[in-house]
Design a protein around this nucleic acid. Structure first.
Lengths: 175, 175
DNA sequence: GGCCTGTCGTTTGGGCCCGAACAATATCGT
DNA sequence: ACGATATTGTTCGGGCCCAAACGACAGGCC
C-alpha cells in the first residue's frame, strides 16, 4: 500500500489554508468525490474489461448507444454519449477503421450521417456487454441496493440541474 | 430544449435489446449516471469559472493540490490529482509556462522534483478558489445536506473498493 | 428564382490522457 | 566495493477532448 495522503490528512491541510474563508466544505467534498469516483470507475472498467478487446471507454460508449438505438445520426450519438460532435468524428473514424461501425449519408437530408453497427460490431457488443455489466455490478457491490438507488437519484438530479442552467444561459445569450 | 432522448426512452430501447439477459440494471444506471454527472460538473465548472482565467480543469486541480500541501513532489501531486505521472509532466509544463508553478530538483535525492506555486500562482488560487467553491455549492444546491453527505459517502466507498481491487491485482501480479 | 438563416458533420489547433519504454539516480545484498 | 534491483520523472506514440471556424446543405421568405 503506497503511503499516499489520507482523506483526513488532506482535509487537515486544506483547512489550514482556507478555514478562515466562508466555504461550503460538503459541496467541495461531494464534487471531489464525484470526480475521483468517475475516474476510478472508468480506469477500472477499461483495464478489466475493455482493454483486452482493444476498446477505449469512449469508443465503447459510442458503440453502446448506436447498438441500443439500432443506429442513429451523428448529432444524437454525440448527445447520448455525452461528448462533442468534434470528438465523435474522431472516435467514429477509429471505430470505422476497426470495422465495427459504418457511416451512411442520408438520402433525404444530405447533411445527416447515419451510424450503424457492422455485423462484427453487433456480435462484439452482444458478447461484451454482459461482461461489462458484471464489472459494473462489482463496482457498486459494496453498496446496498437502496444506497445504489439513492446514489443514482442524486446524480441524475445534478445532471438535470446543470442541464437546466445550461439551457437557461443559452436563451439569455440569444435575447 | 433539444428533443434529445429521455431517460425513459433510453431504458425502453435498452430493454428491447437486453431484457432477456441476466443483467444488473441498477448497477448500469448508477455507473452511467456517475459518468454523466462527473462530465456535466467538469464542463459546467470549467465554463463558468475556470475558462475566463485561462485554466483547464486538470490544471486547476494540480494547482489546488500543490497549494493545499504547500508544494509537493511530482509523484504525490499525480496521486492527489488522480492523473498519471506522464500526464502531470505535460500539465506542469503548461502551468510553468504560464508562470504559476515552479519545478525544483531535490538536493538530497536527485530523482525527485519538488513543485511549488509562484507568487502569481498563490494569489490566483486565493482569489479563485472561493469563486470555484461557490460554483461547487451551486452544483449540489438541489440536494438536501443529508443527501449530499450520503452521496459523498457512497462515492468514497466506491473509490475505496476500487483501490483495494487495484492493489490486490498488483500483489497477485507480483507473486 | 434568389437570398437568408439555421443546422449538419468535419477540420483545425491546442491541450489532456495514458501505457510503455527509458535514463538517471538511489538502495540493497553480498 | 559493486552489481542487481527498485524508484523517479520524462519522452514517445496514439487516442480522446473541445471550441471555433468552415463548407455543404435545407427550408423559409420575398
Amino acid at each position: 500500500m503506497p503511503d499516499r495522503h489520507t482523506l483526513a490528512e488532506t482535509e487537515k491541510a486544506m483547512s489550514a489554508h482556507v478555514s478562515d474563508l466562508p466555504l461550503n466544505f460538503p459541496a467541495a467534498a461531494a464534487v471531489s468525490s464525484l470526480y475521483r469516483a468517475a475516474n476510478a470507475v472508468r480506469v477500472h472498467l477499461t483495464n478489466s474489461v475493455l482493454r483486452q478487446h482493444g476498446l477505449t471507454w469512449t469508443g465503447f460508449v459510442v458503440l453502446w448507444v448506436v447498438w441500443i438505438w439500432d443506429g442513429l445520426e451523428t448529432r444524437r450519438a454525440a448527445e447520448n454519449a455525452a461528448i462533442s460532435k468534434a470528438t465523435l468524428t474522431g472516435v467514429v473514424k477509429t471505430l470505422e477503421a476497426r470495422g465495427l461501425i459504418t457511416r451512411r449519408v442520408s438520402e433525404t437530408d444530405r447533411r445527416l450521417v447515419h451510424l450503424e453497427l457492422t455485423p462484427d460490431g453487433l456480435s462484439l457488443m452482444k458478447e461484451l456487454y454482459p461482461i461489462f455489466n458484471a464489472a459494473e455490478a462489482e463496482v457498486v457491490a459494496g453498496l446496498s441496493p437502496r444506497s445504489v438507488a439513492q446514489l443514482t437519484n442524486s446524480l441524475r438530479s445534478i445532471v438535470t440541474e446543470l442541464e437546466t442552467k445550461s439551457t437557461a444561459a443559452m436563451s439569455e445569450e440569444a435575447s
